[in-house]
Design a protein around this nucleic acid. Structure first.
Lengths: 226, 226, 226, 226
DNA sequence: GATGAATGAGGGTTCATTCAT
DNA sequence: CATGAATGAACCCTCATTCAT
C-alpha cells in the first residue's frame, strides 16, 4: 500500500497525531480540497506549517493520507457483523442501511471528506487516490450475496457483482444524503410531503429496506428448504 | 426561478451565447469549479473578460447559470417517453437505465458539470443552486410510480416518494460511473471479473433492470387484472 | 533569438517599459538572482505584481530578458569604432581598454547584472541564458585580429581565436574590477603600493595596454611594409 | 586572520572534520550559496544540524570558513615550484597555465566554490571574505616578475604590480573556463572552429603561453647577458 | 556534546474582478 | 457596449536557526 506520510509523523505521540488528523479532516471537509488551506490546518492543529510539511511532503499527500485514514475508520464501522455466519443476508443489509443513516451523524466530516475525494473530478490526481476501501467493500458485499445465493436467500438469477455494485450505490447515496448539504436537499425534495413528520429516519430506513429486499431477496414463502 | 444572468446576455445572438455556454461547460467540467479560470473561459469563447463579467456578475453566477442550463438539456433527454400513457412502468424504467448509460457518452461534459455541482460540498453557495431539475425529476418519477400502483404494475406497499428517491439514486450512480473517473474506477472494481468481456454495457443495463424490477414491480404472473 | 517577454510588454509606452527594466536591473544587480524579489521589482517600478507577471511569465524569464537587454546596451558601447577600417588594431584595443574602465562607472548595475548571470553557477538554467553577446563580441574580436594579421600589425604566429579569447578575458576582468566589489578589492590588493596615488585609472589603462600590445602586436620597428 | 569557526570544530577528529568540509564544499559548489541547504550539508556529512550550528554560528560563517579552507588547498597546488630559484620565469608561467587547465579537473568543486564566492556580488558580506589567498598569490606573482626583471627575462618597462594582476586575470579566466559551465560555454564560442579537433587543451595551453610570453618576456635573442 | 523536531517569515505566482479607453 | 490591462490578496512550501531532551 502506497504511503503518503513521512516516518516522522508516526513517531509523534498519539494525541498530537490525532489533533493533526482531525484538523485536516475538518478543513478538507469544510472547504474541499482546493480551498483547504495548509496554514489553517497547521493552526487548527496547534502546530507550525513547517512541522506539517515535515510530516507530509505536499498538501496532496496530506489529503491522500487523510482519505486513507478515513477509509480505515469507515471500514471499522461495517465491522464484524458483516462476517457473522449466523446472520442472514436480510439482517446484514439492514445493518448497512442503518449504518448509512447513522454513521454520518457520528462521522460527518469523514464522510464529507470521502465525498470530496470522489469529487476531485477529473484530473490525474485521482489515479493516486487509494481505492483500498472500495476494493475491500466490494469484495465483502459480493461474498455476502454469493453466500446468500447458496443459502437460498438471494435470488439465483442475479449477477452478484452488479447486484453488489447497485446495492453499494444505494448505501452511498444514503450516506451522502445524510452528510452533504446538496444531497440532503435532494432528499428533502423527494420527501417534501412528509416535512414536519417525525421519525423520518425510521421511514427512510424501512422503505430503503423494502426496496433492497425486493431487489435482492427471494420472498420467505418462496424459499426452498435446503 | 432565480436568475443568475444579466439581461445583456439574453440580447446576444444565439451563436455567441452558445459559444460562451460551451466554453464555460468545457472549462468547468475539465477543471472543476475552483480550478476553472474565468479568463480562460472568455478566451475559449472568443470574447473579453470584461464582456463575460457584464453578462454574469460573478464566477459563481456563471457557474450556476451553466448548471441550470445543463439541467434543461438533460431534462429534454428524459423527454416525452416518460409522459407516454401507453408505456408501461417497466418500459419507462428501461428507458431511463439505457439513458443513464448512453447520455454520458453524448454529454459527458454536462454530466460532469452536474457532478461538479453536487460536489461543491458544503458552503452556503449550495443553497443558491437551482434545484429545479431535481424537483422536476422527482415529481415525474413519483407520478410514474403512483400511476403504476393504480395500474397494478408497481408494488402497492411502497412509499412512492422514497421508492422514487432510491430509484433516482440508482440512475445517478450509473450516470456518474459513465462520466466521472472516480466512479468509473469504482465500477471497474466491482466488475473486475468481467474485464475483457464484451457487451459490458448491455450486461450492466440488464442487471440494473433486474434489480429495479425486483425492487419496484409486481411480477407479471401475480398481477391482478383490473 | 529566443524571446523571454510577452507581447503585452512591448505594447507598453517607452517610459513605463524603461521604469520596469531599470527596477529589474537594480534589484537583480543589488541582490543577485536568488535574493531578488519580484514583488519588490514591481514596487520599485510602480506597477503591480500581477502586471509584472503578465509581461514576463516567470522570474527566470524576466531575468533572462533583462540580461538580453543589457547585452544590447553593452554592445552599443563597443560601437562603430571597432568596425572602422581606418583605425589600427592598437587603437581599437585602446578603445576597448578605456571602455572597460569607463563603462562600469556609467552602467555599473548593468555590468553587475552581467556578472550575476555568469555566476548563476551551475544549473541547467544557464543553458537558457542568451549567449548572443558573447558570440557577437567573439566574432568581432576575431575579425579585428585577423585583419591585423593581414595588415602586418598582429603577430602572425597567433591563433586568432585563442588570442581573442584571452584578450576578452583581460577586458572582462577589468570590467569586473570596476563594477563588482570583490574584484575591486582584488585589484586593490595588487595595487596596494599605489594607494593614495592619483591617476590610478590612467595607470591601469596604460599598463594593461602595454601588456596587450606586447602579447598581440608586432613592434612597429619590426613591421614589414606591405 | 578572522576566524569563522568555533573551537568545538577544531576539537573534532580529523576524519569527521574532513567529512563536514567535503559535504559543505559539494553542496555550496553544486547549488551556489543561496540555494545551498544547511540541513542537507549536515545530512551529507552524517551529523545533525544542531552539531553543524554548534561548529559554525551561521551559514555565512560556514561558507566563509570553507572558502578559506579551499584557498589553502589551492595555494598548495602552486606549491614550491614558484619559489624555486632555479626555474626561469617562463617555466613558472608554464607551470601556472598548465595548473589552471588541470586543477579544475581535480578540484572542480573547490574552484567552483571560489567562483561562487566572487559572485556573492555586492553585499557587505563580501567585506568579511578572507582575501588571504589573493594577497598571498599577488605577492608571489609580483616577486616572480620582479626577480625576472632583475635577471633580464622580464620586460623592464612593466609595472610589476599591474602585470601580475593581468597575468592572474588570465589564469583565473582559464580556471573558470574549465570549472564553471558559463565560462566553458564562452570558451567554446571562441573555439567553435576547432570543434572535433583533439588536443584542445594542449592548444589552449600553448596559445595562452604565447600570449603571456609576448606580454611579459623579453625575447631570448634580445636578452642582454648579465 | 549531540540530536533533530519545531519554528514562521518570506517569496513566486494566480486569478476574479474592475474600469479607463 | 466591448475591451483587456491592471490589481493585490492569497496560497503552498522552504530553510536557517533554536532548544528541549
Amino acid at each position: 500500500m502506497r504511503t503518503f506520510v513521512n516516518e516522522s509523523f508516526n513517531r509523534l505521540d498519539a494525541e498530537k497525531r490525532e489533533r493533526i488528523i482531525r484538523a485536516a479532516i475538518d478543513e478538507f471537509s469544510d472547504r474541499g480540497y482546493e480551498l483547504a488551506n495548509t496554514n489553517r490546518i497547521a493552526e487548527r492543529a496547534g502546530i507550525s506549517v513547517g512541522s506539517l510539511f515535515s510530516y507530509f511532503d505536499t498538501k496532496e499527500n496530506l489529503f491522500l493520507y487523510i482519505v486513507q485514514y478515513g477509509s480505515m475508520i469507515i471500514e471499522q464501522y461495517t465491522g464484524e457483523v458483516m462476517e457473522d455466519e449466523e446472520k442472514s443476508v436480510a439482517e446484514k443489509i439492514e445493518y448497512m442501511v442503518r449504518l448509512s443513516v447513522r454513521a454520518p451523524r457520528e462521522e460527518k466530516a469523514l464522510l464529507r471528506l470521502y465525498h470530496e475525494m470522489s469529487s476531485l473530478g477529473n484530473n490525474d490526481f485521482l489515479l493516486r487516490v487509494p481505492h483500498s476501501l472500495e476494493s475491500f467493500t466490494a469484495g465483502k458485499y459480493i461474498r455476502i450475496l454469493e453466500q446468500g445465493q447458496k443459502r437460498g436467500e438471494v435470488r439465483a438469477d442475479l449477477d452478484v457483482s452488479l447486484a453488489a455494485f447497485t446495492m453499494d450505490n444505494v448505501f452511498m447515496s444514503l450516506q451522502k444524503a445524510y452528510s452533504c448539504d446538496y444531497y440532503m436537499i435532494r432528499l428533502q425534495i423527494y420527501t417534501d410531503p412528509w416535512i414536519g413528520e417525525t421519525k423520518n429516519d425510521e421511514r427512510v430506513i424501512s422503505e430503503t429496506l423494502k426496496f433492497l429486499y425486493g431487489a435482492l431477496l427471494i420472498p420467505e414463502n418462496e424459499r426452498k428448504e435446503r
